[in-house]
Every structure is written in structure tokens, then in C-alpha cells.
Design a protein around this nucleic acid. Structure first.
Length: 528
RNA sequence: GGCCCCGUAGCUCAGUGGAUAGAGCGGUGGACUUCGAAUCCACGCGCGGAGGUUCGAUUCCUCCCGGGGCCA
């Protein structure tokens, strides 16, 4: 089966993005090769397995700069490669590719190093550790968490998990407006129902309003409590909740620090001088501060807490905020890049193929709790993060439950459970990996493929973190599970002469599968 | 009118400069006396269009067409 070329971790990429996985066997190999020829080497897995274990096109890249024929460079590179430890063969192919075949010793030592890293394998890739705040969801407490907000949460939470795994100190924050007109409408709606009346036309009409009306007192705290419960059930935990009413009290201090001017009685921020498309009003001529003034106070407050980096997770309908938020960061004396706005495309709900407009006020939305009840947390989270954040998600509510059984999350979980089963049946004291436990005879293709897949993980995790692209994890996890299932089908672990090696291989696979599942907030079951 | 995202297989989507572009679902046909068949194996079709940069473009640039969103 042809294997898709996967970019391995490389020195060039690492230096570009400032990351370097702590133990990355492929990265180590490309670095030693790079040192041998004096240039950064990019190793990838060739699409055609007959081309060897790894290949590099570095000769082609160097040819133009060195004004030399690529194949000539490739020959020198191959010659250098052959002198390296664990390189079984190196050959030049095509216009100037160098294909490497690795010796069995590379596979055993590599697997040993994976075991040595244990839970840390693939982690701590960040060269500079930062204090990062990820602010996400931040839906106002006027109704239960919707599926739309759940995408925000699932994406943001996975980015936070990736950053934490990479070695950063991450806090998750939820921000809401407890003081605006929306909240008034919400309270009025509940009040109306208590009086036995219909909520106002422009109020909130969902069934949950009636439920809230049954208990006396301010409905807002209870609404918030139930939203938090939904999110916790969805495995999103917030470290802090911030309220706009509190932030607003600090507007004067924030304005003090900004680049401002007055025009027609209003106070403006000169955001256009800081990369925004136009200037923004801070205080209207009637003396009322704008939402942007609150944004400014909020940004100042975040930095004041000592964060090196502020991450905002916002839907595509907010893409216009990027310029003004970064302008605020800059005016407050921070690099504009230190305030990052992650934009994800929206969720489109359909029902039996027909689009449904989502409106919390009308109440015709799908709530996270309903969605989770229908398909479960694991399938829901997997579904929401497995496509790129730049991709609009379509969910057909009628088909969601039906399609759940086909969700690849179970394929990946099954690999984990299968391995757990093998390890349960393994004799006492076995599977303790030692570098010396070389297999009897040659490695099989499936074993080599599985090892190579496992060692892709550090580069995958590092790149997913740097690019804020958690969907790379599910994609990789499916391939890993795929390689494991194939290995399992072809080779017996227990009772085979290679038992010790294969148990070690199973253990490493299980650990990486579990890590992948954890990074997307999905459970890794020992049985299903 | 300006800006952002998208267009890859029948469907849902991976793939941010390399060799013959990959998965899942759906379809067809095979494999359980064996560590878990939620598994494995085999079979089909595809980069919206036109230019440009490059030794090489699904990938980068420009324009056009089509879908979604924001602002004015």
C-alpha cells in the first residue's frame, strides 16, 4: 500500500517556526545528514515504498544556488549518507532525489528512544516557553451553549492542549457581557413568562426560558452555571471567567495608554496608524464609551496579568476584529503578533438537506447538550476538530446520529482497545523494552511502517501547535491506527519469537494513540 | 464597492514547491479453529477555468467563474 509522503521534522522548519521536538528520531537523522553535507536536510517518506524508508530533495533545492547539476550534488549526498550510522543504503533517483534505506538497528534504537521518552514523546517542542491565554467560546449567557459555540470551544480547547503539550503555560478564559442590552432582553423574557405573558418580540423564545422562569430570582447565574456544566461535560474547562462589567471599570486607564484624538465631540483611537483599516471611536459625543473601549480595557487587563501571548478564538463573522485588536496590542506597547486572532469558519446546520437559520432568540438552534446526547462527546469532538478550521462545517441533524457509527474516532479508539487487550494477555513482566531485544530475523514491512509512523508524531504535534491546526492530529491518528491494524492482522504478537520487540511496538503505539486522542479531548478506552 | 474563507473521487474531507495526489463514507467481491472482525484484502472516478513565477505548481502570484461570511 503506497504511503503518503509525510514531511518530517526538519532543521529548516524548526528554525523557521522556533520549535524543536525534544526527541525526534527522524529530525535527528536529518540533522546528522545535514551536518555531513553542510546544508539543512528535509527528510520525507516517499510515496512509493520501493524508494526506501526516507528520501530528500535537498540536492534539487541546492542545485540552483550552487549552479551545479542536481544529480551531482545528490551523488555526494548519497556518499555522505552511507557513512552515517544506521543507514543501510543510499541511492540517487530521478532528477536528484536521494533515497535512504535504514538498517534494522535504526528501528530498534528508535523504538527504544520512544520508550525512554514515555509520556513526553513528541512534547516540549517549543524553544521558548510562553504564558499563553486562550480566550474562547465567550458566548453571552442568554441561552444554552449551541453547536456553533461548540466548534469554537472544540477548536480553541484543542489549540490550548497542543500549546500546553508543546511546553507552554496555557490558561483558558471565558469572557461574557453581563451588562449589555442583550442581557436585559434576556431577563425581560424570563420575567414575561413568569407573568404568564409571551416574551417580547425581540426577546428570547426558547423552551429554556420557560424552565428558567420556574425558579425565582435572577436567571443569569443559573444560565451561566448550566453553560459551564455543558462545557465541562464536553471536556472544556475554563480557568477564568471574565465579565464585561468588571472590565469596563478600567476603561479610563486603558484610554490613558492609547494613541487618541478628538473629533466632533467624540474620542477616537488612532488605530489606522497601527495597521487597522480605519480609526475607531472610543467615547461617543454623548460621553458613552463604545464596545471598542471595553475591548481596549480588556486587552490591557489581559496583558497586565502577565501573558506573553493572547489568543482570541473567533468565528469567521468576526474577522473584521483582527486589525483593531492587533492595533490595540501595538498601542499598548506589545508586538502586534503577540495578540493572535484564530478565525474558524462557521457551522451550517441542515435538517433533511434544508438549511436552518440559527437564531438563539427564535430558539431554533441545536444545543450542544442535544448534540452530545445524540452522538456522544467523543464523536462530537472528533467531528468538530477533524476538519480544518478554514473549512465550513455542515451538519445534517437528521443524519448526524445515523453517521456516528461510521465516525473514524471509533476506528482509532479500537486500535487502543485492541492493544490494551494484547497487553492484558501478555505474560507477567514481559514487554519491558530494552534496546537489546532485537527481533529474530528481518523486520516485516508492517513493522517498519508502524515504527516510521510512530516517529512522525513529534513533527506532527509540533507543526499542529505552531500552525494552530489541531485537525492534523485526527488525520495522523487514523493513519497510525491504520498501520497498527494492518500490523496486527499480519503478525502475531504473543507467543511469537519476536514477542518482546512486538510488545514494545504495541506499547509505543498505544501511548501515541492515547496522546492523540487526549490532544483532541477524546477518551482512550481499554475496552469498547 | 472593499475585505476574509472555500472550490480536490458520487458524498464528507486530508494534502501550504517534488517522484504514480490520498483517507473515510457509499458500491462490488473476498478473509474469523489464531493476541478483540468496531478488523483486514481487492476493484473505480478527481485538483473549477485561464495566464504567470519555477528545473518542477493541487500548493505561490494575477484575473475570471462558482459557494459561504463580514463591512460599507
Amino acid at each position: 500500500m503506497p504511503v503518503r509522503p509525510i514531511r518530517s521534522s526538519v532543521s529548516r522548519r524548526c528554525s523557521l517556526h522556533g520549535t524543536r521536538p525534544m526527541a525526534d528520531p527522524v529530525g535527528k537523522l536529518s540533522r546528522s545528514l545535514g551536518e555531513a553535507i553542510g546544508a539543512a536536510v528535509d527528510l520525507e517518506r516517499p510515496g512509493d515504498p520501493t524508494h526506501g524508508d526516507y528520501a530528500t530533495n535537498v540536492a534539487l533545492q541546492l542545485a540552483g544556488r550552487l549552479r551545479r547539476p542536481p544529480r551531482e550534488i545528490a551523488e555526494e549526498l548519497a556518499l555522505a549518507a552511507r557513512t552515517l550510522a544506521h543507514v543501510g543504503a543510499a541511492s540517487v533517483a530521478g532528477p536528484g532525489f536521494v533515497n535512504l534505506e535504514l538498517a534494522d538497528t535504526w528501528f530498534t534504537e528508535t523504538l527504544a528512544s520512544v520508550h525512554a521518552d514515555g509520556d513526553r514523546f513528541g512534547g516540549n517542542s517549543a524553544t521558548t516557553r510562553e504564558r499563553v491565554q486562550v480566550e474562547m467560546v465567550s458566548a453571552n449567557p442568554t441561552g444554552p451553549i449551541t453547536v456553533a459555540s461548540a466548534r469554537n470551544g472544540a477548536y480553541g480547547d484543542c489549540v490550548a492542549r497542543l500549546l500546553a503539550f508543546a511546553g507552554h503555560k496555557v490558561e483558558r478564559e471565558y469572557y461574557y457581557n453581563d451588562a449589555g442590552g442583550q442581557m436585559e432582553k434576556f431577563r425581560e423574557s424570563v420575567e414575561a413568562v413568569r407573568r404568564g405573558e409571551e416574551p417580547p418580540e425581540d426577546g428570547y423564545h426558547g423552551e429554556y426560558i420557560a424552565v428558567l422562569a420556574e425558579t425565582p430570582g435572577d436567571p443569569v447565574p443559573r444560565m451561566l452555571e448550566s453553560m459551564e456544566a455543558s462545557l465541562e461535560q464536553f471536556r472544556i474547562h475554563f480557568d477564568t471567567y471574565e465579565r464585561q462589567s468588571v472590565v469596563e471599570t478600567e476603561i479610563p486607564e486603558a484610554i490613558e495608554l492609547l494613541d487618541t484624538f478628538e473629533d466632533e465631540g467624540a474620542l477616537w483611537a488612532r488605530t489606522s496608524a497601527h495597521g487597522d483599516e480605519k480609526d475607531r471611536v472610543l467615547v461617543r459625543s454623548d460621553g458613552v464609551p463604545t464596545y471598542f473601549a471595553a475591548d481596549a480595557a480588556y486587552v490591557r487587563r489581559k496583558y497586565a496579568k502577565g501573558f506573553d501571548r493572547l489568543v482570541y478564538v473567533l468565528g469567521a463573522d468576526h474577522h473584521g476584529y483582527v486589525g483593531r485588536l492587533q492595533a490595540l496590542a501595538e498601542m499598548l506597547g506589545h508586538p502586534r503578533e503577540s495578540l493572535e486572532v484564530l478565525i474558524y469558519q462557521l457551522v451550517h446546520l441542515t435538517k433533511g438537506g434544508e438549511a436552518t437559520k440559527m437564531s438563539k432568540r427564535r430558539g431554533d438552534v441545536v444545543f450542544l447538550d442535544e448534540f452530545v446526547e445524540e452522538i456522544g462527546v467523543d464523536a462530537a469532538r472528533w467531528y468538530l476538530v477533524s476538519r480544518g478550521h478554514d473549512q465550513t462545517i455542515e451538519i445534517d441533524i437528521d443524519l448526524a446520529a445515523e453517521k456516528t457509527a461510521k465516525n473514524p474516532v471509533f476506528y482509532v479508539q479500537y486500535a487502543h482497545a485492541r492493544i490494551a487487550g494484547i497487553l492484558r494477555n501478555a505474560p507477567e513482566g514481559s514487554g519491558s523494552w530494552q534496546a537489546a531485544s532485537t527481533p529474530v530475523g528481518q523486520f516485516a514491512t508492517e513493522e517498519r511502517d508502524l515504527v516510521k509512523r510512530i516517529v512522525e508524531f513529534p513533527a506532527i504535534a509540533a507543526e499542529a501547535a505552531v500552525r494552530r491546526a489541531p485537525h492534523a492530529i485526527p488525520t495522523y491518528a487514523i493513519r497510525l491506527a491504520d498501520d497498527f491494524h494492518r500490523f496486527y492482522h499480519h503478525h502475531k504478537v504473543l507467543g511469537s519469537p519476536e514477542q518482546e520487540f512486538r510488545l514494545a511496538l504495541c506499547g509505543a503505539t498505544k501511548s501515541v494513540v492515547a496522546r492523540c486522542l487526549d490532544l483532541v479531548g477524546v477518551e482512550a478506552p481499554d475496552s469498547m
